[in-house]
Design a protein around this nucleic acid. Structure first.
Lengths: 117, 117
DNA sequence: ATATTCGATTGACAAACATCTTTTCAATTG
DNA sequence: CAATTGAAAAGATGTTTGTCAATCGAATAT
């Protein structure tokens, strides 16, 4: 890491020359990038960030009927956002009778957290 | 943190009752959620994750002409992704003559990293 | 000057998204 | 059983996204 590049040394290079030292790019895992992006994408909406935040702060399982009134959104819309989070593995859900409870699955965000740090 | 909820105690509540203890949600910073989501959204594409990754690994400034051939994408498309990252404050750019060099601005991702941890 | 080169911008278009309303499903209650 | 209720799914609609081909602007080279 911290491999620095020669920075723009040749302003007058001949036609076909490279502009700078070639970037060593050992096929850095497109699959990994895709996983990271998928999680980030799921968090790329303020409503979903707030949903995760609430669920995390409560550390237990929160009922959908509690989540809906926190937003100025219809119940199906909140449900839709929860589905996105579920598809990304960020939250899990559990039904108890009529109610559905959601909770955060911290492992899902672990790889992203690690990459960011 | 780690305030647990009473979990689904009343399966037979009378009509108008709440399904569970109300979630205390003291207007948890929608603005903050928006900032976090904006950064996450910018990272919500595999190409952009890889771009950031390459830039970070090189810790210096990398020329666009080096970045383009790393992807199976046209130059304008790479430019577009770089613009998204720039708009999110994740990368900065500098021109030297014909060439444009990009670098990561780590501060931009700091808030997201902190929130995730 | 004129031609070349790097990179950004524009315009176009299909795919994906966020939202709402309406509908469906499963569980509960009477 | 029939009626009710919480949550998910389906359908509709306007917006945003990712991509490319074509063009443009600035800097360089001949």
């Amino acid at each position: 890491m911290a491999v620095d590049l020669e920075l723009a040394p040749k302003l007058k290079r001949p036609k076909g020359d490279a502009c700078c030292e070639p970037v060593a790019y050992p096929e850095i895992d497109r699959v990994r990038a895709q996983r990271l992006a998928a999680v980030a994408k799921a968090l790329g909406d303020p409503v979903r960030v707030q949903l995760v935040d609430v669920l995390r702060k409560h550390a237990g399982k929160v009922c959908v009927c509690e989540l809906v009134p926190l937003f100025d959104l219809s119940q199906p819309t909140v449900s839709h956002h929860l589905k996105k989070l579920r598809e990304a593995g960020i939250v899990g859900s559990e039904r108890r009778g009529l109610w559905a409870y959601y909770y955060v699955q911290p492992d899902a965000m672990e790889e992203l957290t690690a990459w960011l740090s």
